[in-house]
């Protein structure tokens, strides 16, 4: 009897992603996500990068995450991990919406109070950074509740790739 991906349906509203095990430390496995491309490609998109410093490899390394090694994973295995949709949305809102909100509030107040360009600019930058601090606090709270961590779903089948 062959086992296929259909035997392990993911819980509803879970986003799946592929990751590879890169290290085992006791009961914790370290995984690196596989890079996806914007135009629909997948693991094969080795040419993906960005006009920025540092390489793709460096960027992926920064996104390493730990997972409880309950299923006896070995280095080099490909696994499927998932995050809930709500988690992604909350993460995006925390990281992006909060600082913008703070920046615009500060900018709006400055424009109303003073009205000159440099002052507004300074206020918006200050608001942006204040927003980042608020964002950090929110993120800690989310992480403490375990909402941000990816969950192990299943081992990836041999030739399973994303669409």
């Amino acid at each position: 009897m062959t086992v296929t991906a259909d035997d392990f349906p993911a819980p509803a509203h879970t986003i799946e992603g592929y990751a590879r095990v890169v290290g085992i430390e006791g009961a914790v496995a370290w995984l690196e996500p596989e890079q996806t491309a914007s135009c629909g490609g997948c693991a094969a998109a080795a040419s993906c990068g960005s006009p920025g410093l540092g390489s793709l490899a460096g960027r992926i390394k920064a996104r390493r995450f730990p997972l409880d090694n309950r299923d006896a994973l070995i280095v080099g295995e490909r696994v499927v991990v998932g995050v809930t949709e709500r988690a992604l949305l909350k993460a995006a809102l925390t990281a992006f919406a909060l600082p913008m909100l703070a920046a615009f509030t500060a900018g709006g107040l400055a424009q109303w109070a003073d009205g000159s360009n440099p002052v507004t600019m300074g206020a918006m930058i200050a608001g942006l950074f204040a927003g980042f601090l608020a964002s950090r606090r929110m993120a800690h709270r989310l992480a403490a509740r375990g909402e941000l961590a990816p969950r192990f779903l299943r081992r990836a089948q041999q030739d399973e790739t994303c669409r």
Partner: peptide, 8 residues
């Protein structure tokens, strides 16, 4: 079925 990969 889908477009090529963008370089960035």
């Amino acid at each position: 079925m889908s477009g090529a990969h963008c370089a960035a």
